[in-house]
């Protein structure tokens, strides 16, 4: 602890996050009669689903002490690419496959620059962000417009709007699957363990024989794959692909991870934290929209929550749960 301000100390901040969530839910239940309904939770999950999908991998990158700012651009790029191919006759499943591979290409590119060439991740992924977004705009322009909507096959929206058992939106299903996979990666696989080790002490990791470059490339590829897949899901759900949909996505993903207790210097964090962090963001925006509070106040509220959460992280000290 270097902070001069004395804050209450907790071993882990997960209880704090759960506390904040419970508090928000109580407040929202009291002030909005429509809050405590199944449909509303479905809405919240839909809103934060994309954040969770991307953050689950981006979080592991952050645990290694790196960062991926290109997720929003890769999401937009993938949505546009998918729409472009579908519009021009590529069968939807094949288009999804190609798009996922192309998205992973961005991730491998990131991983190579950061892991092998050792360029600072902020700069490297910022570069990728601009290139990918540029290509997203270019593809839309090749199609002759700003976004792609007209001429998409009717089945285009089938995936994004699919309801499991007739009532569970497909994004929620994916969120559950991906979160489970990453929980598994964190606890049970070498990849997860090495991620923590690299973030904790990169030099010791290298001297222990961990192939740091390989781990970083795999993680960036996973992050880009999930960003790409999210782009497909999102554009399929809306029935339109636009090159600007990923704007600020990287910020949201960052906020979700930091809220969830992931240390930006690496070595600490978990998918559980990401879920809780995303829940706070989701509840906040949902609540403010339910109450019809103006956009500008929403921004203020978002900033305040972020700072409070980081303070909470500081007070949680170095203990690992």
């Amino acid at each position: 602890m270097t902070g001069k301000l004395k804050l209450p100390r907790f071993r882990s901040q997960l209880p704090i996050l759960v506390g904040i969530i419970v508090f928000m839910m109580i407040v929202l239940t009291i002030i909005s009669p429509n809050f405590l309904k199944v449909q509303n939770f479905s809405n919240i999950l839909l809103k934060i689903g994309i954040y969770i999908l991307i953050a689950s991998a981006a979080n592991l990158i952050m645990i290694t002490g790196n960062l991926d700012l290109s997720v929003g651009a890769v999401l937009a790029f993938s949505g546009i690419l998918h729409a472009y191919m579908c519009k021009h006759g590529v069968p939807i499943p094949l288009s999804i496959l190609i798009t996922c591979i192309a998205a992973m290409g961005w991730g491998v590119f990131n991983g190579f620059i950061v892991g092998k060439l050792r360029i600072v991740p902020v700069v490297a992924t910022l570069g990728t962000m601009y290139i990918a977004e540029g290509f997203a705009f270019l593809i839309a322009r090749w199609d002759g417009g700003t976004n792609i909507m007209l001429g998409l096959p009717g089945a285009y929206t089938r995936l994004g709007r699919y309801m499991m058992f007739g009532k569970i939106p497909v994004i929620i299903v994916f969120v559950v699957i991906v979160a489970a996979i990453f929980l598994f990666i964190e606890k049970k696989t070498k990849l997860g363990r090495f991620s923590y080790a690299i973030g904790d002490n990169r030099s010791a990791a290298e001297l222990s024989g961990i192939n740091v470059t390989k781990v970083i490339i795999i993680l960036y590829a996973l992050s880009a794959l999930l960003a790409g897949f999210s782009g497909i899901l999102q554009s399929s759900r809306v029935g339109l692909a636009a090159p600007n949909v990923g704007r600020m996505m990287e910020t949201y993903v960052l906020i979700v991870c930091v809220l969830g207790g992931t240390k930006m210097s690496g070595g600490k964090g978990s998918i559980i934290g990401v879920l809780l962090g995303a829940a706070i963001i989701g509840l906040l925006e949902n609540g403010l929209n339910l109450l019809g509070i103006d956009h500008f106040y929403q921004e203020v509220a978002r900033g305040l929550i972020l700072i409070i959460a980081v303070l909470a992280q500081k007070s949680s000290g170095n203990g690992r749960n």
Binding site: A197, N201, S203, I210, N318, R320
Partner: peptide, 20 residues
């Protein structure tokens, strides 16, 4: 400290790091 330990990880996770 610089090259050996993974300070934030538990002892249990440190020991197998060179041969998972």
């Amino acid at each position: 400290r610089v090259d050996g330990i993974f300070g934030q990880l538990p002892i249990r996770a440190n020991i197998p790091m060179m041969r998972m």
